[in-house]
Amino acid sequence: MGVSEVDEIDVHDISPMAWRLLRVAAGYGQREVEVEIDDIMQAHISMLENNNRSLSQERLDVLFDLYHSELTDEQVCVLVSNF
C-alpha cells in the first residue's frame, strides 16, 4: 500500500481555520472532542482554532486521526490545502 496525500500532511502545518473546518466537517463540537480524547479540553481546541496555542505532537496526531476517521481522504486534503 502506498503513501496517500493525507499521510503527507504535517499536522503542524494545518492552519487554525482548517482545524476548525476539519472538526465541524467531522461532526464534532469542541466539547464533544473533549469527551472523545483523554487529556484534551475544550479550551485546548479553542486555543488551537484561534491560533493562540498549539498542542503537542501526540495530541495533534490524535486529534487529526479523530477528524480523519469521520472524513474521506479527499475531504481532509481539500480542507487542509485550501484553508
Rank of each mutant, 00 (worst) to 15 (best):
M1V: 03
G2E: 03
G2H: 04
V3M: 12
V3D: 04
V3W: 06
V3P: 07
V3K: 15
S4Y: 13
S4N: 14
E5S: 08
V6I: 10
D7V: 15
I9D: 01
D10V: 05
D10I: 00
D10H: 08
D10Q: 10
D10M: 09
V11K: 06
V11L: 08
H12Y: 12
H12Q: 13
H12R: 12
I14N: 01
I14T: 05
I14H: 06
S15M: 07
P16L: 13
P16H: 08
P16R: 11
P16A: 11
M17T: 15
M17G: 12
A18W: 03
A18P: 08
R20F: 13
R20I: 05
L21T: 02
L21K: 03
L21Y: 03
L21Q: 01
L22K: 09
L22H: 03
L22T: 09
L22V: 13
R23T: 05
V24Y: 06
V24C: 14
A25P: 03
A26Q: 11
G27A: 12
G27N: 12
G27K: 08
G29Y: 11
G29S: 15
G29R: 09
G29K: 14
G29D: 07
R31Q: 00
R31G: 04
E32M: 05
E32P: 00
E32C: 04
V33Y: 00
E34I: 13
E34R: 06
V35E: 10
V35K: 12
V35G: 06
V35I: 08
V35R: 09
E36W: 01
E36C: 02
D38Y: 09
D38R: 06
D38N: 05
D39Q: 09
D39T: 14
I40L: 14
I40N: 05
M41L: 15
M41W: 05
Q42I: 03
Q42K: 04
A43E: 10
H44G: 12
H44K: 15
I45H: 02
S46F: 11
S46G: 09
L48K: 09
E49I: 08
E49L: 08
E49Q: 10
N50P: 10
N51R: 15
N51C: 11
N52F: 12
N52V: 10
R53Q: 15
S54N: 14
S54Y: 02
L55V: 02
L55K: 00
L55A: 00
L55I: 07
L55F: 05
S56W: 10
R59D: 08
R59H: 13
R59M: 11
R59I: 06
L60S: 11
L60W: 10
L60I: 15
L60Y: 08
D61I: 10
D61Q: 14
D61M: 14
V62P: 00
V62H: 03
V62T: 09
L63W: 05
L63A: 05
L63G: 07
F64M: 00
F64E: 02
D65P: 11
D65I: 00
D65N: 14
L66W: 04
L66Y: 07
H68C: 06
E70M: 13
L71K: 06
L71N: 09
L71V: 13
T72G: 02
D73W: 11
E74H: 12
E74F: 06
E74S: 13
Q75M: 10
Q75I: 06
Q75W: 01
Q75C: 10
V78L: 14
V78Y: 11
V78Q: 13
V78M: 02
L79D: 01
V80G: 04
V80Q: 05
V80I: 02
S81F: 07
S81E: 04
N82R: 00
F83G: 04
F83N: 13
